[in-house]
């Protein structure tokens, strides 16, 4: 049976599609093209919001991350903690995803250490805790007790200078939550924003969460929004610390263009095949 070119286009083997996507993503990662980064007002406002907090403010970073979100949330987390440290904010990193805090130690801590931050004085990583609801609820009245007075390595939180002045959740100046799903920003909004403990929540979401995060931002539930790899790249650019996000933007752009092109080819192929069959 002779298949026309359109019939072939409408039924390209999946394995060929995977190879196309792999090439389209891998090549620009090694040889970036340098597409311009367009700034969004929400990211500009969010960076200004973080900068508006005075030195000494205690900021909480929700390390709600997993290895699957590394491309988007790793550069976002690194850029945001670097900005916090530069502004003299005290950084408390916690998380309710099983590998979130371990990944924060791998991703963010080396950059903070390199910048001169001292663990226990300038930042601390709390370690994984199950049951976000009860722990965040308890942290409203006793933050240290809610986290069992232990950091990720078993050190006593109550003996760390960074925890000075942090008795309850309302002592936190603002939150920056990495948001790939649940637990995520909604968990903190319910626990600490709805109760009036913390009014400033910055939603650092993946592209998959961008729609619901955008709704929350528009509704005023969150005060800041940085979305996906694009948001991370803008953050890197705004803080003058280009890292993985800026480099990955070309790969993302070409990857999206490839998907659009394949969608168009597939659809043309489908309708053309239908027309050819009707003509017969």
């Amino acid at each position: 049976m002779n298949n026309s070119i359109w019939q072939k286009a409408a039924s390209i083997d999946n394995r060929i599609l995977y190879i196309i996507m792999a090439i389209v993503v891998a090549v620009p990662l090694m040889n970036p093209i340098g597409f311009p980064i367009v700034f969004q007002q929400e990211v500009l406002d969010t960076v200004e919001l973080i900068r508006s907090f005075p030195a000494g403010t205690i900021a909480y970073v929700g390390a709600e991350v997993a290895a699957t979100n590394a491309a988007e949330l790793r550069p976002m987390m690194i850029a945001i903690v670097q900005l916090m440290y530069e502004l003299g904010h005290k950084i408390v990193i916690g998380g309710f995803w099983a590998d979130g805090c371990s990944l924060a130690r791998l991703w963010a801590a080396p950059f903070l250490d390199e910048a001169g931050a001292v663990y226990g004085e300038d930042y601390v990583i709390l370690g994984y805790r199950p049951s976000s609801t009860s722990i965040l609820d308890q942290a409203r009245t006793n933050f240290i007790d809610a986290f069992s007075d232990r950091d990720i390595g078993g050190l006593k939180l109550s003996e760390m200078p960074v925890m000075k002045g942090l008795e309850k959740a309302s002592d936190l100046g603002y939150l920056a939550i990495m948001n790939p799903g649940s637990p995520g920003t909604a968990t903190y909004t319910t626990a600490w924003r709805a109760t009036g403990e913390v009014n400033v929540i910055i939603d650092c979401c993946t592209s998959g969460m961008y729609i619901s995060s955008g709704n929350n931002y528009q509704a005023g539930l969150t005060a800041g929004l940085i979305g996906g790899l694009n948001g991370a790249a803008q953050l890197e650019q705004l803080t003058n610390r280009p890292y993985k996000a800026i480099r990955s933007m070309d790969a993302q752009a070409l990857g999206h263009l490839a998907v659009i092109a394949l969608l168009i080819i597939g659809n043309i192929g489908y309708f053309q095949t239908k027309r050819e069959e009707e003509a017969k």
């Binding site: 996507m21 990662l29 790793r74 592209s207 998959g208 969460m209 961008y210 729609i211 990955s248």
Partner: peptide, 23 residues
Amino acid sequence: AGFGTGIANYVSLLIGRFDFIMS
């Protein structure tokens, strides 16, 4: 729109793995 952000998420996932292996 939801499907589009889903695709973006998968492309990011692929970028993350390539970045891990190659970089």
